[in-house]
């Protein structure tokens, strides 16, 4: 059984088994949010396989085009289409439909084998606060993602606390404070333009003294090319690790789904400063296809852990590779 048929059967089965309402609802938001990205990619793949009775050079060229236009990246796109071309030759496959399924297989295997096994949920420490450092370039949705993450773990019964480490951007502290009020969780904030590392220190101290389970540290948006700002981030990380052993236990990079190939450079630069344990892709409810998910994993081995699919605090979903690829290939047609 090919991977795709396996995925299909998995989804069919869960449909028949009438999964509990909660999971159903979760898949609904997921489907709705991802509709745009999947519709485009899937319908184009579908259309491609209809136009070609047998695959040929033009077919592979068009396949490459679809991949690149999904922001998968030139390098990986070329490799994928070359790989498929070889598969077609070796296994004498000529049906576009078969090859499309093999494409998804290749993407799946490529993603899974590129790094460690993936666990989406935050790995909590056995004792003491678990520290999550959140970073990214400007305007990707760090603060909103933090609110969503806080909401998620408060619902799971964790004591969550926020640190407003963006002392630079005007309005940033207010933005996080509004969220903290809505969520009803404690927040530590510094004065405007104060040293974010000292705010992080205060936060870590408070967290230790008040039995906080999850300390989420917001940081100012910074372009990865600004050396002094990257130094500042390194300092925040150092202060955290001095106060709490092993901290930050998780470092998430937030990336906008509409980001092009610069996303790989972003991940690379942030990874040098703090050991990134995961990526949150935001704004997946737009029309972009989030191909950057695949190229970052391919180049750096960092897994995507969550997807942001809307503006509400519940609009955060675990990243599910099966669902993502299944959606890409099959579109909403068979999902309806």
């Amino acid at each position: 059984m090919g991977l795709v048929s396996f995925l299909k059967s998995k989804f069919k089965k869960s449909d028949e088994a009438k999964v509990d309402a909660k999971e159903e609802a979760s898949r609904d938001t997921y489907s709705k949010g991802m509709e745009k990205s999947r519709k485009n990619f899937a319908s184009r793949l579908d259309e491609l396989s209809k136009r070609y009775a047998k695959v040929n050079a033009e077919y592979f060229e068009e396949l490459e085009e679809i991949l690149i236009e999904s922001d998968v990246g030139v390098d990986l796109s070329l490799r994928l289409s070359e790989r498929l071309l070889n598969i077609a030759k070796e296994e004498k496959l000529s049906e576009p439909k078969d090859l499309n399924e093999r494409l998804i297989d290749e993407m799946f295997v490529g993603y899974v084998t590129k790094g460690e096994a993936i666990q989406n949920e935050i790995a909590f420490q056995e004792s003491g606060p678990t520290v999550l450092l959140v970073c990214g370039v400007n305007g990707v949705g760090k603060t909103t993602s933090i609110a969503k993450l806080a909401y998620r773990y408060m619902k799971k019964g964790k004591k969550v606390m926020l640190v407003a480490g963006d002392t630079f951007r005007a309005g940033a502290v207010e933005q996080l404070r509004v969220w903290a009020d809505r969520l009803g969780c404690p927040i530590i904030a510094g004065k405007p333009d104060s040293d974010p590392a000292s705010v992080a220190y205060d936060g870590a101290k408070y967290a230790k003294e008040n039995n906080i389970d999850l300390l989420i540290v917001d940081t100012a948006g910074r372009l990865q090319t600004k050396a002094n700002l990257m130094q500042e981030l390194a300092k925040i990380r150092r202060v955290l690790s001095r106060e709490i052993e092993g901290a930050p236990h998780e470092s998430f990079l937030i990336i906008d789904a509409t980001t092009g190939q610069n996303g790989v450079l972003q991940a690379k630069a942030f990874k040098e400063v703090t050991d990134l344990t995961g990526i949150v892709i935001t704004k997946m409810d737009g029309t972009s296809k989030g191909g950057i998910i695949l190229s970052i994993r391919d180049e750096l081995g960092i897994p995507v852990r969550f997807l942001g699919l809307g503006e509400g605090m519940e609009d955060l979903q675990e990243f599910d590779l099966d669902k993502y690829l299944y959606g890409l290939l099959l579109g909403e047609k068979e999902n309806a």
């Binding site: 236009e69 610069n262 296809k289």
Partner: peptide, 12 residues
Amino acid sequence: VDAAAGQDAVNV
């Protein structure tokens, strides 16, 4: 438009 915008920028 963000300088880092990807392929979707034209649709936007």
